Simulated assay, not measured.
Amino acid sequence: MILHFCTAAAWADAQRAGEYTADTLATEGFIHCSTAAQVHIPATIRARGRTDLILLEIDEVRLPEPPRWEPGDGVDTENLFPHVYGPIPVHAVIAVHPFPPEPDGSFAPPKGLV
């Protein structure tokens, strides 16, 4: 299981389209994902304080290609993060979870998924 955070609106668009494509797929060639223990790191750096985020729980087996585990992009270069090189089919998303920030705007590892 890997996770990707996005807005609820982006997920609604993906459901209508049948696949999820983050803007980084066009700009970087892949969709950034994380483990449950990592997802709070990029979320805090890139989306501090946002209240419209959700977590997509992705079954790696349902992806057309397995994710590539690669160093982070300056966020955390010591850990490997799963990168998905292509759109994520909506059927690969097995659950959607709320992802609210902490009172200080940071994000914490999601309870129950770590």
Score class of each variant (00 low, 15 high):
P67H: 04
H97L: 09
T7V: 01
F5Y: 15
A26L: 11
A22C: 07
T21W: 04
D23R: 14
E19V: 04
A10W: 03
V93I: 14
H40L: 00
L55Y: 04
E78V: 03
N79W: 02
L113D: 09
G18E: 07
P110K: 02
G29C: 12
L53Q: 10
L63G: 08
P71R: 11
A47C: 13
G49M: 11
A12P: 01
T27G: 03
E28N: 10
V90H: 07
I31S: 05
P64E: 12
I54W: 11
V96A: 05
T7I: 00
E57W: 02
A10Q: 13
L3M: 06
R46S: 13
R62P: 00
Y20K: 00
K111V: 13
P109R: 04
D73L: 03
A92Y: 14
D73H: 07
F81Q: 05
G72H: 06
R50A: 04
A17N: 09
E57F: 02
F99V: 05
D73W: 01
L113K: 07
A12M: 06
F107M: 08
L63D: 08
P82K: 08
W69Q: 02
A8N: 09
G86C: 05
D13N: 13
E70C: 02
K111A: 15
P89T: 05
P66K: 07
P82M: 03
P89D: 05
I88Y: 10
D23F: 04
A92F: 13
F107R: 10
A92C: 10
V93D: 08
P101S: 07
P101G: 08
F30M: 06
T77H: 07
A37W: 07
A36E: 11
A17H: 11
L3K: 04
T44S: 15
W69C: 00
E19H: 14
D59K: 06
E65D: 12
Y20T: 01
D13A: 13
E19Q: 14
Y20E: 00
I58R: 06
P103N: 10
T35K: 02
P89A: 05
T21V: 10
